[in-house]
């Protein structure tokens, strides 16, 4: 009985040292994924509870952060992901590569066409643009942009083929650039390019 207690304490303190410091990152990703503060908190809490229950499955010395994100992604996909598919996804193929560059380049004779846009676009615009991506694209984009995971790590976290990660990143980017451009035009940050 006493040994069990010692064992439990050790498990708990290991977990707190290894896993808890990642909560910051988990929460910011959860916030972008769920768009809703209390959903994000529930998601992170659920992830930690599950991780703690399965702590003996974690291999000491391996990447704890990736392991936690894998658990969180799994819960997100099963329980939180939006039920309806976004209709936006169908039109991605019509968006050119380097969409923003194509729209901004040559508008005026400015050296760095992006500077004008950067000065105007708000943090919230960027967050909204990410949050409005369809879940599949959003997941890989957030894991890459926000958390800096490699394609290979994302493939493992989200249980996808490497090629699928690449193509989702590519298409997610197109949508994101298109959205940012639309915000910028709608809010009058830039004038729409004459077709």
């Amino acid at each position: 009985m006493r040994n069990l207690k010692v064992e439990n304490n050790r498990k708990r303190s290991n977990f707190e040292t290894e896993a808890l410091p990642h909560m910051d990152a988990m929460l910011r990703t959860a916030l972008r994924m769920t768009k809703d503060g209390s959903d994000a908190e529930d998601l992170v809490q659920e992830t930690y509870a599950k991780a703690y229950r399965f702590w003996d499955k974690f291999e000491p010395g391996s990447n704890c952060r990736a392991w936690l994100f894998k658990i969180m992604t799994n819960i997100f996909i099963n329980e939180y992901r939006s039920k309806s598919r976004s209709p936006v996804a169908a039109s991605i193929e019509d968006i050119d590569d380097s969409y923003l560059y194509g729209q901004l380049a040559g508008m005026e004779s400015t050296e760095n066409p992006e500077q004008r846009l950067f000065a105007k676009i708000l943090d919230d615009d960027v967050r909204k643009a990410i949050e409005n991506l369809p879940d599949d694209f959003k997941l890989v984009a957030v894991l890459s942009f926000l958390e800096g995971f490699s394609y290979q790590e994302i493939a493992e976290i989200a249980d996808l083929q490497l090629g699928t990660v690449k193509s989702r990143m590519h298409r997610g980017r197109k949508l994101l650039q298109k959205q940012l451009y639309n915000y910028a035009v709608t809010n009058g940050y830039i004038k729409e390019k004459a077709q």
Partner: peptide
């Protein structure tokens, strides 16, 4: 250069560095 700058911009905007009360509550 443009795409690199856009990427850097998006990443920077996405990171929210405000001290978060929410995080402490969640902890």
């Amino acid at each position: 250069r443009f795409e690199g700058a856009i990427q850097e911009f998006i990443t920077r905007k996405l990171r929210d560095n405000r001290p978060s009360l929410r995080l402490e509550v969640l902890k």
